[in-house]
Amino acid sequence: MIGFSGAAMRLGARRVLPLVAGLAPFGLVVGLLAQGAGLSLTEAGLMSGLCYAGSAQLLALGHWAVPAPILAATLAALIVNLRLVLMGPVLAPWLDRVKGWRLMASLFMMADQNWALSVEAMRRGEGDAGFLFGSGLLTWFVWVGTTLAGHLLGGVIAPAPNHPIFFAALAVFIALLVPMWRGRMDGLPRVVAAIASIVTSVVLPGTWYVVVGALAGSLAGLLQERLRPPAPPAALVVE
């Protein structure tokens, strides 16, 4: 299948393997939280399998109640995942070449880690939408599996919130920033994104800071190119 190759799926799965190891503690934490919030094993598995969005699940489970807060959980998922609205179009050069269930499945599997690897691969001219799907599928299995394991473990392991195991998630995002550096042109937008996200995180509740910072930083990038066109022309979304 052109644009959705098995080779790209396998490449994606191989690349994401070290990252899913870092994801495992968070799947366990989501499972532990779900168990503590009173969700059954099936319900915890359903949430991780269908929603498949760690930060939204952590947020929702942190504010769970009986009966379940249907509207609040839905709205929280919407706000936390607004960043996915911005992430999908970046992979358009890949996604434009697939249709139907392959497109749906590729986008369903889009999560932060495998999206970042996909952007990197796409910019290097490797793979196709199969990379996004394959890397996401492996991530999905580990996510659901570790959620179930966390639920089963129940209260047996309960690392404190400041335990360094939780630093692994942050380290993944910090490390991903290094290969994403395209050159000096990325300096100012990243500084703007950092300041905007920190200020927003102090001023606004929830996770608005991710969306605000991403928009502020990328608009700063546009402004910088408008005011002082760099030479050679900046590499944009690479085809």
Binding site: V90, A214, G221
Partner: peptide, 22 residues
């Protein structure tokens, strides 16, 4: 398209910066 090209870096900085700040 220019904005989309800047989103990946800006997005991950926006994850990381508030966490490091806090």
């Amino acid at each position: 398209r220019t904005v989309l090209g800047y989103i990946p870096g800006a997005l991950f900085v926006s994850y990381v910066a508030p966490a490091l700040f806090a």
